[in-house]
Design a protein around this nucleic acid. Structure first.
Length: 915
RNA sequence: AGGCACGUAGCUCAGGGGUUUAGAGCACCGCCUUGACAUGGCGGGGGUCGGCGGUUCAAUUCCGCCCGUGCCUACCA
């Protein structure tokens, strides 16, 4: 037997562990990838070869849950695919530590509160609060001490998250890591403000703003959510001034907020409402406080609602704000920033009253009380006939009528929002709606229908973006105000930081042209004490990563980004603000595609939330099923679809990993002489493999990774391990068996054996590369056994790559030079024949390994024609010694039926390898 | 109240530019200790594709209406 050819590099299966140890491989490979810089961005390559990812910076102080793994993995799968197609990947990750969640965590963890008036304590070390400490009032700490505590805690939280991302195998370039609170981000955010200020796109105003009374902080429209709350219509009688001349002298309003009666500044009804027409232009008198207020008509009043006439207060809701503005009504602010009623004096403008003593006596019962308590008390007072403005008896008409109605809450808040006039910075957006919509349309949304959420939100935007927050741990607003001779700030003459000075903290830094001694002195300056809305900074993630401020050249190469993955819950915030910023700064879209991932729901399809206690943490699941299984689960869900967590899917993922491990061990341990892929079955299999690779590429290009995975998985089981591998096994092993002189094989059989081994290896190589974006660990492990040192692609087109994650994505070059099969259907016919024989064995309750001494197989004439070409493989796989074909024109093409089967005795099995 | 998505086997989900018996996995039943793998293999049962109408030779797939679920936006006296 000539042995002129070189041997196929094979592995010794005995040297590979019996089972796949996922945890061990995960830590080993992640370390290796980091050390080898597999995920590093190469700044020297051109933009056209670069794929830029804008990632969501997680809030590390939040709880870790499986939803994080879900959405971040979906993005990583896409990125890994792009990397294998040869793209230079820019894939940064940061932490959104700036903001309220961190403050809340610090408050709870140490049981402290920030008090800007408390002096700084040098070297203060806080300790986690014990249960005992928590019972006492929270400790007050200075603003700098509080911020130090925040920095301390985020370090821990981010380390925990980082560990998870490494474990899950996110292929992030960790050299690009940032924190939204770090100096670079503060500088970027303040630069953004400077630019918007220069463009006159930001302004201050002390307009009524939505205010959370617990956080004592302004809130933007995007952070507001409606919650259905029980409430009640309270019907309250008002008097009409000058009604003596005849006609009705009173009317009854309906309100859900009787406690705002002292803040009543007007009364309105629809202009066509006959009931109230006579009153327009007159003044109404409120009960209890006897305040005269104008009665005016308004199209916005709904005659069907309540009693059709309502009191306008400062401020019950946004419509009140509108009426207040349009009608030039008085401002009677009774709700204070802390959610309690303020002290006011009736008789002094703007608190008019016709009966000052009565009004003050009544109000003194309410001042200082929380809103809810004030409501109860005022309702009681309205039951007193003495409170009446008309003399008709108790102003409260009947019992309050319970209703359920939507009430605005801060999404993180516990009490309804109030509208309070406070000085805030705003960014102009309302006059740019059309442009925003146009930019949204320029982005490709995946899935497409998610753009509707952006559109709905943008079209319904009713307020400019409120930027200031009365908080501490965030990016300071880089602004001071000059103080006049009386020490009063001139808010219209804001002093904005110099571009070279940023980032600044106005509470410690001094504006240009002043010195520290002038801080808070008449004729000096005072800092803006506020920080920016967190979204003000996180809406700049593409510019943060591109180094917009410091490196215009890098910025030009990394901005706009290619993809933005994110959840659909933050379309109105993160996506919206990012689009807005990119538009306002540079009139571009921030990214070309956005991939919207769905939510993870609990097994009962309920949203996971801490309060429901149904949150699942990912690490125990990863330990149980492996990181690859976690990724398999995440990648099985299509974009945008909310998915109930199903542990079963993790189980299936784990099974796939095991199967890959075993199949790879078998394939790579086959030996033989290097030979071209020449046999009919092999060529037919390769054709199917080639179609799979093309399909997978198309799916990935359209971000349909779940379809790609499903197809590859199905192919792997049904066309590779269950069938091709079984059909080609005996032929592949023939060479090794032939090493034994007694079984010496012919030259033709050497070639046939080499063809089988080459096909098995090509199949494995292509399949693990198709799986690599989803299953980075098992595929890298298998790759390392042999392929890492070889050129891939039948013509050697794909250069050797030590990591599968930088190996070439399967393409035509992997299949070039392999002849097409004689019959396109050869493979399917072989599978069908084998299945028919297997079924016959199963029906006879025989093991699949049972030898067959005689087989008569029926098929159509054309199918038999095809069968002849792959007959040897079928018969050896089924261990058939003698066979005959019967022509049966009744059978459809490709179908086979067993007409006769005779089994060998059990001990006789196992002689089939002598073919 | 408008909009979007979804409703396919017991469960989780594919699919569908109309065409023979509608798919997978899990679960279930039967069989097989076969030589990569019992963390396996082979075989099997199970669905009038939410309902009603329409277009069509033909619809689960296209259209309309309805029902259910989820979400988005609005409503907030």
């Amino acid at each position: 037997m000539p042995r002129s050819q070189s041997l196929i590099a094979s592995i010794d299966p005995a040297k590979i562990s019996k089972h796949f140890d996922a945890a061990d491989v995960e830590t080993r490979l992640d370390t290796r990838w980091q050390n080898e810089g597999v995920y590093h961005y190469d700044p020297t390559r051109p933009r056209g070869e670069t794929f830029v990812v804008d990632t969501p910076p997680p809030t590390a102080s939040g709880s870790l849950h499986v939803g994080h793994v879900f959405s971040y993995t979906q993005a990583d799968v896409v990125v890994r695919y792009k990397r294998m197609t040869g793209m230079n990947i820019f894939y940064p990750l940061g932490w959104d530590d700036n903001g309220l969640p961190t403050e809340r965590r610090v408050q709870n963890y140490f049981h402290v509160r920030c008090d800007p008036n408390t002096p700084y304590e040098e070297g203060l070390v806080l300790e986690a609060a014990s249960a005992k400490v928590r019972k006492k009032p929270a400790r007050m700490v200075s603003r700098p001490n509080f911020i130090e505590a925040c920095f301390g805690l985020i370090e821990e939280d981010e380390a925990a998250f980082s560990e998870l991302w490494h474990r899950v195998g996110l292929s992030v370039d960790w050299r690009q890591e940032y924190q939204t609170i770090d100096e670079h981000c503060r500088r970027t955010a303040q630069h953004s403000f400077l630019d918007l200020h220069a463009k006159q796109l930001v302004y201050t105003s002390d307009a009524p703003t939505m205010w959370d009374v617990d956080f004592q902080c302004a809130v933007a429209q995007a952070e507001v959510e409606d919650r259905n709350q029980p409430g009640a219509y309270h019907k309250i009688e008002f008097a009409v001034e000058g009604a003596e001349e005849g006609g009705a002298s009173s009317f009854v309003i309906a309100t859900t907020r009787p406690e705002l009666l002292p803040a009543c500044v007007g009364v309105t009804a629809h202009p066509d409402d006959e009931r109230y027409k006579p009153f327009f232009g007159k003044r109404a008198i409120t009960p209890l406080f006897h305040a005269p207020v104008p009665i005016f008509s308004s199209e916005m009043a709904d005659p069907e609602k309540g009693t059709g006439v309502l009191m306008v207060c400062t401020f019950g809701d946004q419509t009140d704000v509108q009426w207040w503005r349009e009608e030039g009504l008085a401002l009677r602010q009774v709700v204070g920033p802390n959610g309690r009623l303020c002290s006011i004096d009736f008789g002094e403008a703007p608190y008019e009253s016709l009966e000052v003593d009565k009004a003050n006596a009544a109000y003194s019962e309410l001042a200082g009380k929380p809103i809810k308590r004030a409501q109860t008390d005022i309702v009681a007072m309205l039951r007193d006939p003495d409170a009446s403005a008309t003399g008709n008896g108790a102003p409260l008409q009947g019992e309050p009528e319970p209703i359920e109605h939507p009430v605005k809450f801060f999404e993180k808040g516990d009490r309804p929002l109030e509208f309070l006039p406070t000085r805030q910075w705003f960014c102009r957006l309302l006059d740019r709606k059309a442009d925003l919509l146009a930019k949204g349309a320029e982005v490709s949304w995946h899935p497409e229908y998610m753009e509707a959420r952006f559109r709905d939100w943008t079209e319904n935007l009713s307020l400019d973006w409120c930027l200031s927050r009365q908080r501490y741990f965030g990016v300071p607003i880089p602004v001071w105000y000059p103080l006049d001779r009386e020490g009063q700030p001139d808010y219209d003459a804001a002093i904005v930081a110099e571009p070279e000075a940023i980032p600044v903290d106005p509470t410690t830094d001094v504006p240009k042209g002043f010195d520290e001694s002038q801080r808070n002195q008449p004729g000096g300056f005072t800092p803006d004490p506020d920080i920016f809305d967190t979204w003000f900074t996180s809406s700049l993630t593409p510019q943060i990563s591109s180094h917009w401020v410091d490196d215009p050249d890098r910025h030009a190469r990394l901005f706009p980004a290619d993809i933005r993955p994110q959840g659909h819950d933050i379309i109105r915030t993160w996506a919206f603000y990012t689009i807005a910023k990119a538009m306002l700064h540079e009139d571009v879209v921030p990214w070309h595609h956005t991939l919207i991932s769905g939510w993870i729901l609990d097994p009962d399809r309920k949203k996971m939330s801490k309060s429901k206690g149904n949150v699942m943490t990912p690490l125990p699941l990863i330990e149980k099923y492996s990181a690859d299984a976690a990724r398999y689960w995440a990648a099985s869900a299509r974009l945008g679809a909310d998915t109930a967590i199903d542990e079963n899917v993790w189980k299936v993922g784990k099974r796939l990993v095991t199967k890959l491990f075993n199949a790879a061990k078998f394939v790579l341990s086959q030996t033989g002489e290097v030979a071209p892929i020449s046999q009919e079955l092999d060529r037919a299999f390769v054709r199917k493999l080639q179609a799979l690779a093309a399909d997978s590429t198309r799916n990935f290009d359209e971000f349909r990774y779940a379809n790609a995975l499903a197809e590859t998985e199905t192919f792997f089981w049904t066309n590779f391990t269950d069938t091709y591998l079984e059909l080609a096994k005996v032929r592949a092993r023939a060479y090794a068996d032939g090493a034994d002189a007694a079984n010496a094989i012919s030259e033709a059989d050497v070639l046939a054996s080499g063809s089988a081994v080459a096909t098995l290896r090509l199949g494995l190589s292509v399949l693990i590369r198709l799986f690599a974006p989803v299953l980075p660990y098992i595929t890298e492990e298998v790759w390392s056994w042999s392929f890492a040192g070889e050129n891939q692609g039948s013509n050697g087109a794909g250069a050797a790559s030590p990591s599968i994650h930088r190996a070439a994505w399967p393409s035509e070059s992997d299949f070039s030079g392999i002849e097409a099969p004689e019959h396109a259907g050869s493979f399917d016919v072989a599978v069908s024949a084998l299945a028919a024989i297997n079924k016959a064995k199963a029906d006879a309750e025989m093991s699949m390994g049972r030898g067959v001494s005689l087989l008569r197989l029926a098929a159509s004439a054309s199918t038999i024609d095809v069968l002849e070409g792959v007959c040897a493989d079928i018969m050896s796989a089924a261990r058939v010694e003698d066979h005959a074909f019967d022509v049966d024109p009744e059978l459809g093409d490709g179908l086979c039926a067993v007409r006769q089967i005779e089994f060998k005795d059990r001990e006789e099995r196992g002689t089939e390898s002598s073919r």
